[in-house]
């Protein structure tokens, strides 16, 4: 992993091929002050490759959600930098962050967060609406076809199953062709069958539509759908797993637990 001091790329030059879509550099987040200070993130350096589905995994309180918030510009870092493409999101104000979220970032939430008064289609195109743009119909049809929503477009969220709602949410996240989609426990509120369905759709979005997805999860089965798993513990990167299987992810988590017992040793995680 590259831990050298990061030199920002020239934003005008565009992204070199195969460059990471999202990067964190020395990201630190402290909560509280004085005695009660909690170090949620402690100098994290991490890259997320474009065109990949990457899972961030770790036990509760490990800092995985905090990492995602900082990378997505939803929360301010205490120190360090987070980049989406060439943009330093830690340096942006609220207006620029809003524009960034609108145009270059998509979100998938654990509890779907669809607007109940809008139909599936209206929900999907909402980000374009908010930006005042026009919907790319071809891309919309592709998304709807890939996610199997063609028959559900006129339904309201209350008329959709959990899995269908989450697929609508994924379509909403992808409609603006964002640089990256952040998914926060996307299967947390779903039964295992719907969960598996949603995860395979996420993977298809990456493989067939060329999108970049960063997914936070604590479920090894979910993580196994990713191309790569980043393990995090106690606010630090604890290792990573390429081409994970549920078994290898479990093994990695077990190693983390061992790590808790022997804090001085770097873990022997499969690379």
């Amino acid at each position: 992993m590259d831990t050298s001091v990061y030199r920002p790329l020239d934003p005008e030059a565009g992204m070199p091929d195969g460059a990471p879509a999202v990067r964190g550099r020395a990201l630190t987040k402290l909560y509280g002050r004085g005695e009660a200070t909690v170090r949620a993130l402690d100098g994290v350096d991490v890259d997320f490759a474009a065109g990949h589905l990457t899972a961030i995994m770790g036990p509760s309180g490990s800092g995985k959600s905090t990492l995602m918030h900082l990378l997505a510009g939803l929360d301010a870092a205490t120190s360090g930098q987070a980049f989406i493409g060439a943009t330093d999101v830690t340096a942006l104000g609220d207006t620029e962050l809003t524009r960034l979220r609108r145009e270059r970032v998509g979100f998938v939430f654990q509890s779907f967060n669809l607007l109940p008064m809008f139909t599936a289609e209206q929900n999907i195109v909402l980000p374009v609406d908010l930006a005042g743009g026009t919907v790319d119909r071809e891309w919309f049809d592709t998304l709807v076809g890939t996610l199997g929503l063609a028959q559900r477009l006129t339904h309201r969220p209350s008329e959709l199953s959990g899995g269908q709602q989450q697929r609508v949410a994924i379509a909403r996240a992808l409609i603006t062709k964002p640089d990256v989609v952040f998914a926060d426990e996307p299967t947390g509120n779903l039964d295992s069958r719907s969960g598996a369905e949603v995860l395979s759709f996420l993977r298809r979005s990456v493989r067939e539509l060329g999108r970049t997805i960063v997914m936070v999860t604590h479920d090894p089965t979910a993580a196994a759908y990713a191309d790569r798993v980043v393990l995090i513990a106690d606010g630090r990167i604890a290792g990573e797993i390429q081409d994970p299987t549920p078994e290898s992810v479990l093994a990695g988590l077990d190693a983390l637990r061992t790590l808790d017992d022997e804090p001085t040793l770097a873990p022997a995680v499969q690379r």
């Binding site: 207006t95 607007l115 603006t176």
Partner: peptide, 16 residues
């Protein structure tokens, strides 16, 4: 609350 936050997350500006 949650809904407003969602809208903010998917690109609704404060002004909007």
């Amino acid at each position: 609350r949650r809904e407003s936050a969602t809208l903010r997350a998917i690109g609704l500006s404060r002004v909007q």
